[in-house]
Design a protein around this nucleic acid. Structure first.
Lengths: 140, 140
DNA sequence: AGAAATTCGTTGCACAAACAACGACAAATG
DNA sequence: CATTTGTCGTTGTTTGTGCAACGAATTTCT
């Protein structure tokens, strides 16, 4: 019997991730015209307060250049502010503007609703599923 | 409490999928210099025999243009053959050459080994995990 | 303190992907 | 049977991503 792509885990994972991301991306695209990297940067900022590009790059699995460009667009749109670090002038500190915080309040609610839907589709195994994801993503 | 990106399912799913895909892609890149779309096309062909571009496009979650270009590269590399459909001359029939089949035999073994590793990392919940993925990917 | 190595963010470039448009063909409609 | 409508695969174009290189700034090492 030859190889079965449909049963192959990396393939399924890719397809599932793409579908889910697309579905959710449509929501924040409609709400604020955001791209995926922009959404991730905002979301991380909402939680972490002021933070450098490097921080985001590491924590959020995006290339430095992607974070940099996303941050510039978000600044132009008025959702975040760049400023210099007090003691280390290489670093750039990113933080949400009040408009950005308001936006993230709305998007956070949308995200929570979306996740609830997702968990409903997943049924009772949702926590186990999430744990498995962490295991897969954990080892760099 | 503000939004927690790390606990957000679509995000985790994306990151996990990217990590796993990357890891596996390194294997078939080393073995045969394949890209992800090329690998998917070959893998689908290995299972389905002769099949049209459209078929692959639908079943394998790749854009038509991506399938088309991947097929051309694979043909140039000698791993598949294009031919006309008997009765409908719009369709193009793709099928593996003997070299392509030999390649897929090797890659199939590599994939099986990889999946075994993955399941080991996932632990006992692996089947439930796979089922959840199917549920997520299932609804177009 | 001075030199070398390292880190941070940005930018340039090569490459792959998404989307639309097209020509060739087939099916449906009148 | 002619015309319209739809499908299939390819190709062109725009956009986004990944990687390397760079200037500015800091840390390390002697």
């Amino acid at each position: 019997m030859s190889f079965d792509l449909d049963g192959f885990l990396p393939y399924r994972l890719s397809v599932a991730a793409a579908r889910v991301s697309r579905r959710f991306a449509a929501l924040y695209e409609a709400e604020a015209g955001l791209t995926i990297p922009e959404w991730r940067v905002l979301a991380h900022l909402a939680r972490s307060g002021s933070v450098s590009v490097r921080d985001i790059h590491e924590r959020v699995a995006l290339d430095k250049s992607v974070v940099s460009r996303a941050a510039s667009r978000l600044e132009a749109a008025g959702w975040l502010r760049k400023s210099e670090h007090e003691t280390d002038r290489r670093l750039i500190v990113l933080e949400l503007t009040p408009e950005g915080e308001a936006l993230m309040a709305r998007l956070g609610a949308i995200a929570a609703r979306f996740q609830a839907e997702l968990c409903a589709e997943l049924g009772p195994g949702a926590e186990a599923f999430a744990a498995a994801l962490t295991r897969l993503a954990g080892e760099g």
